[in-house]
């Protein structure tokens, strides 16, 4: 069990998302940086899709009520355990009573904005409609269907067979595969249905100009600031299904990228869709930072997904080998 000590947490329990409930009007939710959560789970010998705690407001403090093996992945937030620094993306052991503190993410070789507290055995909240992810809009799933508060106690699942090696880690995906365009983080995007309904200037601006992540950005959507996007004629669409990554352009002309807590339907025109494999990159982009969109096609998106898959498969294989050697030795 872990106890939340922070007062204004805005942290949520997330797994890799809720699949198959779109037809009930239920979006997917899930970790904004799915690679970081999956990597943390694999480091600990968990199932890739076990639930962890997504932290997006710092400082964030928890107390381990029982001994626990854990890893903090995602943004490097200078974590300390009872004041002693612990490495990011690293398997650590906590004794009962120890306090883990996460501080605001550091500007490092790779800069993120969300950290994942992964626990051996996973956060063991009840499964709701097939997932442990918090569904904020529907107020269910995760811990009591809401963001965590001071005093909340989260149960931890039974970890795999002891002993478990600690004291090793993996490279963050953002360091292994950085993606930049003209000095800014690049996000690969496939044109969507209404792309060609925008003026040539708007289309050129969309692909060539930097976009700023505004403070009105959260798990539902990232509202971007940049050149105004104008359709050649006003567009009014019928409501239709959408997925995280869809870039809608409301009448104001400033795009909104749908993120993990996005609703499953929408009606604003769509200029593009961030490919599934790059949603974690956008999810880690800090508020106030700038990004660029880079055109991608179906084959490119599949290649990017295959890279993500290989990254996680490598972690699974190498950590299993290393853990096996250490547990025997």
């Amino acid at each position: 069990m872990i106890e939340i000590l922070s007062q204004t947490a805005l942290a949520t329990v997330q797994d890799l998302g809720r699949v198959g409930a779109l037809g009930f009007g239920v979006g997917t939710s899930g970790a904004m940086d799915n690679l970081a959560l999956a990597a943390g789970n694999l480091l600990l010998g968990n199932a890739e899709g076990d639930a962890g705690v997504e932290v997006q407001v710092f400082p964030f403090d928890v107390r381990f009520q029982a001994a626990c093996t854990f890893a903090v992945t995602g943004a490097d937030c200078g974590a300390t355990l009872d004041g002693v620094p612990v490495l990011p993306w690293w398997v650590c052991a906590a004794r009962a009573g120890q306090v883990l503190q996460l501080r605001p993410p550091r500007v490092a070789a790779w800069r993120g904005s969300r950290a994942y507290l992964c626990l051996a055995g996973g956060v063991d909240v009840p499964v709701a409609l097939g997932s442990r992810s918090t569904q904020l809009r529907g107020a269910f799933g995760g811990h009591a269907g809401r963001a965590l508060r001071q005093g909340d106690v989260l149960p931890v699942g039974a970890a795999g067979a002891a002993p478990r090696a600690v004291g090793f880690g993996v490279q963050p995906a953002g360091l292994v595969e950085p993606l930049l365009q003209d000095g800014l983080p690049a996000i690969r995007v496939m044109p969507a249905a209404e792309h060609d309904c925008y003026t040539p200037d708007s289309r050129a601006a969309f692909w060539q100009q930097p976009w700023k992540i505004t403070p009105q950005s959260d798990r539902y959507g990232f509202r971007l600031a940049g050149p105004s996007l104008t359709p050649t004629v006003p567009l009014e669409l019928r409501s239709h299904g959408i997925v995280p990554g869809v870039i809608q352009v409301p009448h104001g002309g400033q795009p909104i990228v749908q993120m993990r807590d996005a609703q499953p339907t929408g009606g604003y025109p769509k200029i593009g869709t961030v490919i599934d494999a790059d949603l974690w990159r956008l999810g880690q982009a800090p508020i106030g930072s700038q990004i660029r969109f880079v055109a991608c096609d179906w084959a490119g998106a599949q290649q990017a997904s295959a890279w993500n898959r290989r990254y996680l498969d490598d972690i699974r294989r190498l950590t299993a080998l290393y853990r096996g050697l250490r547990d025997r030795g």
Partner: peptide, 14 residues
């Protein structure tokens, strides 16, 4: 005490 890391692929060993 950890004095360095040995990296093999994505794995970081103390």
């Amino acid at each position: 005490q950890m004095v360095g890391l040995l990296q093999v692929g994505v794995l970081l060993m103390p």
